[in-house]
Write a protein that binds this DNA or RNA. Sequence first.
DNA 1: CATGGGTCTATGTGATCACAAAAAGCGCGC
DNA 2: GCGCGCTTTTTGTGATCACATAGACCCATG
Lengths: 190, 190
Amino acid sequence: MHGEIAPGHAFTLRGIGAEFGVSMTPAREAVRRLSAEGALTISSSGRVSTPELNNERIEELAALRSLIEVELASRALPRAHIALIDRLQSINARVSEDIAHQDAVAYIRRNLEFHRTLYLRAQAPAMLAMAETVWLQLGPTMRALYGRLRRKDPPHYHRLIIAALKAGDEPSLRLAVRSDVTQGLKMLVG
Amino acid sequence: MHGEIAPGHAFTLRGIGAEFGVSMTPAREAVRRLSAEGALTISSSGRVSTPELNNERIEELAALRSLIEVELASRALPRAHIALIDRLQSINARVSEDIAHQDAVAYIRRNLEFHRTLYLRAQAPAMLAMAETVWLQLGPTMRALYGRLRRKDPPHYHRLIIAALKAGDEPSLRLAVRSDVTQGLKMLVG
DNA sequence: CATGGGTCTATGTGATCACAAAAAGCGCGC
DNA sequence: GCGCGCTTTTTGTGATCACATAGACCCATG
């Protein structure tokens, strides 16, 4: 999810087991679960690897993020009080630090933490789980994406999200979330 | 997914294995996969059962269906030619038969077949997989729902979907799909 | 008759093994 | 030097086992 693993990276059950000091059995179950969520692909011969997404698939997943996360933000809006907004601003400040340090993994993790913190207020666990499933599928690709573009400026749309939350402006919030989610994609595909 | 299993039904790994003539290992892997998709819940002690959804969770899943399936229908619209519409009408006729026979499982299966046939045209496999994951989570609950209401009339909104497809009317299509998806829910919650 | 404790069974977990198939390595021939 | 076929190794699959624990059952006691 955090982009620690590159797209196309191959795993072996015995290797995973050895890495975590267990036998093949728990490794197999973990792999089965992750592949059911789309985080790993299993070839016809049973080999396991992180997926290499083509542009169509990336566009789809970005559209799913947009659909689900806009709804989550919209549901969180009426419950977003000042304490939450403060926490979002604090997380956002650390996002800027991670960008300054050129740490792609930390940046992705913090960025998702920003979104998750907001969406938790929506009190919609099934929707949040769905969003996180999409994040999981995009993880390796996001690393390849954010590793490529050497950005220096902190995320613009995060500020817009916070501003819309403060103003209680739902249309602006929906637009800001949609823009934030699809922003990275456009750079990859375009 | 088709409502063959009631909510809260408990499984044992050895029971599943015996039912399909295999050992515990494949049963465990299947259960792990299905629980990762939310189709089964695993208690803290590892017991497996179909979920018993509360009203909030059902509302969430219906909202997810609405979000994803409206998008899928919208993407399918420009590719929906007469052959597809004919097939949808044919499926819809059999839905009416299943209602006449008071066969809840067959009705659910056929109803989902109607939706899947349309959405396949969207050429969006990740979105379709997401929608089917939601169907899977709602399966047992849908059986309890449709078993309760003894309806006699064929699905009204399916006709509206077909009409909107014929007319190439996207706003009508979006409304019809949203109505069809959330219709059953209202009867359960309300 | 209800309730609590104790026993017994059922169940999930993780490890290990045998096997088949696929991948990788290797050497031979052209 | 380069394919091609064979051998060896790696790897996933399914079965089985030992073990710990949770649930069920039963009986005695208040």
